[in-house]
């Protein structure tokens, strides 16, 4: 009972916030709706028993990726009138995309109705192994899919190095903080105790 209620709650909020993501005038509102959609998708994953993936979704997408999104969007200077003016220009492209998605939906539902795709029962089904979610994912990732997993890591590393190389440049005339020299500096290097006689100044 409560599962059904929770499912319809999460699912309807996902769909509604997805719709608001594209309908909202203000891009910041769009991102916030998107975050709400992520969050409720995590709720759906908890319902199918994938709590580990659900937590990762919240930590990675909501906690990190969406924050960066929000960062960028908040600092954009957007002219809303101009945005709406481009509507007619982009309409054909949008219609084409909509047609593609409609075709995919039709094919997908048709294939599902036909019932020909047997996904098969995996040997490493967590429920069957009697293991927790995390153990099951680890078991799969680090044994059967170890090469895919590691190559995904390498791809990410290359992307990261690429981004750093593209943005890192040495500029002349910049004086960055030298933390080492700041830490090494002692009071004796910077201060001096003197007892000047009355009427005499201090030589700096």
């Amino acid at each position: 009972m409560i599962q059904i209620f929770a499912f319809y709650l999460f699912a309807s909020v996902v769909i509604a916030s997805g719709a608001f993501t594209i309908l909202a005038r203000n891009p910041v509102h769009s991102v916030l709706w998107l975050i709400l959609a992520f969050f409720n998708a995590a709720g759906l994953m908890v319902l199918i028993g994938a709590e580990f993936i659900a937590m990762l979704l919240v930590i990675v997408y909501v906690g990190a990726v969406a924050v960066l999104f929000l960062f960028v969007v908040m600092m954009l200077d957007i002219d809303f009138a101009e945005l709406r003016g481009g509507f007619m220009k982009n309409l054909p492209l949008g219609l084409a995309l909509a047609a593609v998605f409609l075709a995919e939906l039709v094919f997908g539902i048709g294939a599902y109705r036909a019932g020909n795709i047997a996904l098969g029962e995996h040997a490493l089904n967590p429920a069957r192994m009697g293991a927790s979610n995390i153990q099951a994912v680890g078991e799969l990732l680090y044994t059967r899919y170890i090469f895919l997993f590691e190559s995904a890591g390498v791809v990410l590393l290359v992307a990261m190095v690429g981004a750093i190389v593209l943005t890192h440049r040495r500029r002349a005339g910049v004086r960055p903080q030298n933390i080492g020299s700041q830490v090494r500096r002692r009071p004796e290097d910077a201060t001096r105790n003197t007892q000047p006689a009355v009427g005499q100044g201090v030589q700096l």
């Binding site: 995590a42 709590e51 580990f52 937590m55 990762l56 930590i59 909501v62 995390i134």
Partner: peptide, 11 residues
Amino acid sequence: INVGLLYILAV
């Protein structure tokens, strides 16, 4: 729950 620490990180 068995993902308690992850839950705290997420929240």
